[in-house]
């Protein structure tokens, strides 16, 4: 479904953030990208989303070359990202945030239905529809960011560290919902530092180190590999 081939990303003159990075995501999968701080996880998602331009390499999504497409066209193609740090519109209400998620859609009835679905998925948002999104708690903001992305009806949903800064119970909740979204038919590319949780719900995983893929396998195998256990799973 998504095929990233040998991308190289530079910031400024010196920083070579992604080095010949390739990865594949198949229809219906949950694929996780794990790695330490600064490994290049966000850079990978931002390159796929069109926010960062690779110097070389290609990104193909459902047989369409999206490497040079502007970010808003990539969303139109069915690829949506929940960015690191949520990036919700704090000045707008919860409801308006969700409406903006459906910005490209014109099917009013279906939008209303999806909004209902998001509120069912996240009842806490339903209780806070008219509240400025900036007043939500961290966990609620993460739910809003996911809900907002769902409103675009993505084929492939990319999540950048959805567990960041959340209490363990909430992390569990978020991961359960990610799984639920996947079962409902949305393919998932999940970036995480919480490798244990990520590997527990993913089908396959990639391990990133300083801009390179150093390992890839099924999630269950990765969870047993010594290096991964030592580096990311606390022994």
């Amino acid at each position: 479904m998504l095929s990233v081939q040998g991308i190289n990303v530079f910031y400024g003159k010196g920083i070579h953030a992604l080095k010949d990075l390739s990865l594949e995501v198949g229809q219906g999968e949950i694929v996780t990208l794990i790695g330490a701080n600064g490994a290049g996880k966000s850079s990978t998602l931002n390159t796929i989303s069109g926010l960062v331009r690779p110097r070389s390499g290609s990104v193909v999504f459902r047989d369409m070359d999206i490497t040079k497409l502007p970010a808003h066209k990539i969303v139109e193609a069915g690829l949506c990202q929940v960015p690191e740090g949520r990036r919700i519109f704090a000045n707008l209400t919860v409801q308006t945030n969700l409406e903006l998620g459906a910005y490209l859609r014109k099917d009013k009835a279906a939008i209303a239905r999806d909004m209902q679905r998001v509120y069912e998925l996240f009842p806490r948002l339903a209780e806070r529809k008219q509240q400025p999104a900036g007043t939500l708690s961290g966990g609620e903001q993460q739910m809003l960011a996911i809900g907002r992305a769902l409103m675009s009806q993505p084929q492939l949903l990319m999540l950048d560290e959805p567990s960041m800064g959340l209490a363990p119970l909430l992390v569990k909740e978020i991961f359960r919902i990610v799984q639920e979204i996947n079962r409902a038919g949305t393919t998932i590319l999940l970036v995480e530092q919480n490798a244990r949780m990520a590997l527990s719900i993913a089908h396959r995983g990639y391990v990133l180190e300083t801009g390179r893929v150093v390992m890839t396998d099924s999630a269950s195998v990765l969870a047993e590999v010594d290096e991964v256990r030592k580096a990311y799973l606390g022994g």
Binding site: L51, A71, V75, C80, P83, R87, L92
Partner: peptide, 24 residues
């Protein structure tokens, strides 16, 4: 209006707006 909401979104965070499919 939708256009107005897009303006407010862009004003707040251009990248996040682009990730909503808004042509910034």
């Amino acid at each position: 209006t939708k256009a107005g909401k897009a303006m407010r979104a862009v004003s707040y965070d251009k990248e996040a707006a682009a990730l909503m499919g808004i042509n910034v």
